[in-house]
Structures are given as C-alpha cells and as structure tokens.
Simulated scan of single mutants.
Amino acid sequence: MRLLAAMSGGVDSAVAAALAVDAGHDVTGVHLALSPDRQTLRSGARGCCSVEDAHDARRVADELGIPFYVWDLADRFREDVVDDFVAEYAAGRTPNPCLRCNEKIKFTAVLDRARALGFDAVVTGHHARLADGELRRSVDAAKDQSYVLGVLTPEQLAAAMFPLGGMTKDRVREIAAGRGFAVATKADSHDICFIPDGDTRGFLARKLGSRPGPVVDAATGETVGEHEGTYGFTVGQRRGLGVSVGDQQPRYVLGIEPVTRTVTIGTADLAGVGEISTAAATWTAAVPELPFRAQVQLRAHGAAVPCMVTASGGGGLVIRLDEAQRGIAAGQSAVLYAPDPEQGDLVLGQATVETTREREEAVRP
C-alpha cells in the first residue's frame, strides 16, 4: 500500500512510520506545520509542532530512507481548532481541541489531500486499535487515545492505520531505542499544543479580554465573588475559584452563563449529573438500534460508566447514567463504548454534550 505517515516529531509517530516501512509499504512522511510562527514554540515546550519537532521528524524519515515533506496547515488549524476553541469557551462551553484536530485536520484535511495525491491510507502514532474496521481501545490503558478518535466515521477509519494500538508505550520506546532514534527518550507532549506554557486562562484572556461578572453560590443565591471572564472556568472545577464561602465546604463550578457572565458554584451534593442531552451523534460503524445499553466516557482520561442511550430530536441522544457523575460540561464529547466486559473496548460513536440534568438516584433501566 502507498501510505502517508503523519510524523509529529515524537516517538509514537516515528515508530508508527517505521513499522509501516517494515511491513513493506511505500511510505512517505509528512509533518504538519500548524502554527503561523513556529519559532515561538521552543525546545522544552509541553505542546508540539515546533521547528525542533519538524527537525526531529525529518531525521527519523532520513534514517528510514523515506521521502519527507512539511505541509503548512496553519490557516486551517487556526480556523477549525483554535478559533473554535476560543468561541466555545466564550459561549460557556468546554471543548476538546485534540478531538477537533483529529476530526478536522488529521482525518479530514490531511486525509483528503492524501487521497488526492494517490495515497491509500494515513498512518499515525495514536494509541488505539483497528480490528476488522472497528475502532477499539489500545492495549495500554494508560495511553489509550480512542476517546479523541471517537468522532471518526467508518469511511475515515477505513483509510487509517494505528500500528501502536497493540503495544505498550514502554515497548514503543524500546523499538525506537533499538533503531537508534534520538526521539526514543523524548518526553510526551502534554496540554494543548497551541498553548505550550499550559496557561489556558491566560491564553483566553489575551484572546477575549476582560469580561467581569459575578460568582454566585447556588445554595443562597448570593454573590460571593467576582471574576474577569467566564472563560476562566469549566463545570466541575474546584480549584482557582477565587472565592471564600463562610462554611468552608469545597465548592465546585455548577454552571456558566456567558450572557449574564455568571459563574454558579455549589457544594458536592449539587454537582452530580445523571442525564445528558447531546447534539447529533456520529458513529464509528453501523448506527446502533436505539435504545441500547453502553458505557460512556466523558473525559479524555476519565473512566467509562454504564448508561442507557435513547434518541432525542435531530439525531441527538439522551444518555442516562447509572451513577451520577461530576464535572460534565457542555461542549465535552460523550464517547460511547460497548457495554459488555468482553467487547467493552469497542468504540460505538460519540456526541457533543449540550445540556445536563441532575438525578437524585442512580438509574438502572
């Protein structure tokens, strides 16, 4: 097969490209330039996509003896990922930019261009498995990235290859070291790639400016503090609220209202969510017959919980959780997995959270 290997400059994509070459495929490497000023992303940054990352990717390609190119997708990335991220926070929602990047950049923009150039598939270093066209969790649970791939369609998955899904991260580094790759000991990227210093609140403040408003305690309705912008908060947040309440009980963000610029906080007993309504769902395989039992994962590194999934209007879903969960915010992705233990690593699809509702008792249909 003629394959395009997306090479970020990290150890995962380097080994994925190497395994594709070892399998006898005709491989070409490509590094995505996603920042308009990559010189600002220096060595040691916790993100990715710096000039140094491009150099690391090129060195691996040279060692593999494969062609290598840099594709400038900075404008597309800004529009589809960065601007979306800022707009979502401005609207009081909590987006996942990695999921959006996979959906809009790596498996739309890159895949479309790859197909136009005659490539059969795109190879990436994601820790997830494809088995008979079905998306499944990685064998390395700590590194599993199936959550941020849950937005992909069957057509996109048919043109994707994830060679690392059947091995642990330690094994990936062993392979890289055995081949003499300099990236074998390179640290994993963390946080958001376009916010390399990790200061999300500062980044949003620079983009959106000061938008002060009240912090209100749900129990009393009293204003207990002020903030400089609702974008500095997310539902479920406990630390960094900047308020002090007399009873000294921990407070969590319960709601964000961007029009009135109100952040509502409350105690743990008010923070539980038992029912979620979503936007239209996307499915990684055939559309399942509703209603159905499933497991749902609500954060990239969260645990999946049992639930019942039913239909709502416009292709959306209602997801009733067996046990109430905290910190579920509009804008997050609810990724659904098969319900039974033997097939629990199978990804069914995903939908974006629109609204949440409290439930006083666990639900077991």
Rank of each mutant, 00 (worst) to 15 (best):
M1G: 12
D12M: 09
G24D: 08
H25N: 13
T28H: 12
T28W: 09
T28Y: 08
V30A: 14
A33I: 03
S35T: 14
P36R: 14
P36F: 15
D37Q: 13
R38K: 09
T40A: 15
R42Q: 14
G44C: 04
G47S: 10
E52W: 08
D53A: 13
D56H: 12
I66S: 13
I66D: 15
L73R: 04
A74H: 11
R76L: 06
D84H: 15
F85A: 09
V86N: 02
V86F: 00
E88G: 12
E88C: 08
E88V: 08
E88L: 08
A90I: 05
G92L: 03
R93D: 13
T94I: 14
P97Y: 05
P97W: 03
C101F: 04
I105R: 04
K106H: 03
F107P: 02
T108M: 10
D112W: 04
D112M: 04
A116L: 11
A116Q: 14
L117I: 04
V123P: 11
T124N: 13
H126A: 05
H126N: 05
R129N: 04
L130F: 06
D132N: 07
G133L: 05
R136V: 00
R136G: 04
R137G: 13
R137M: 08
D140V: 00
A141L: 13
V148R: 00
V148Y: 00
V148C: 01
L149G: 03
G150I: 02
P154D: 05
E155S: 10
A158V: 05
A158Y: 07
M161V: 15
P163Y: 07
T168G: 11
E174I: 09
F181C: 03
D188E: 12
I192C: 15
I192E: 12
D197G: 14
D199S: 08
G202D: 08
R211D: 04
P212L: 00
P212I: 01
P214H: 05
P214C: 06
V215C: 00
V216D: 05
A218E: 09
T220L: 08
G221S: 08
V224D: 01
G225M: 05
E228I: 09
G229Y: 01
T230P: 01
T230V: 07
T234K: 10
G236M: 01
G240C: 07
S244Y: 09
V245F: 03
Q248L: 11
Q248W: 09
G255E: 08
I256P: 10
R261H: 08
T262C: 10
G266I: 00
G266N: 02
T267I: 01
T267L: 01
T267E: 01
V273G: 14
T278V: 06
A280G: 09
W283D: 07
A285C: 08
A285I: 07
A286Y: 02
P288E: 06
E289I: 03
E289Y: 00
E289W: 01
L290I: 05
P291Y: 01
F292D: 03
R293H: 13
V296T: 06
Q297K: 11
Q297W: 07
H301P: 07
A303I: 15
M308A: 10
M308G: 07
M308N: 06
A311F: 04
G313M: 10
G314S: 09
I319C: 01
L321P: 10
A330S: 11
S333L: 10
Y337G: 07
D340G: 13
V347W: 15
A351G: 08
T355S: 12
R357M: 06
R357D: 01
E361I: 10
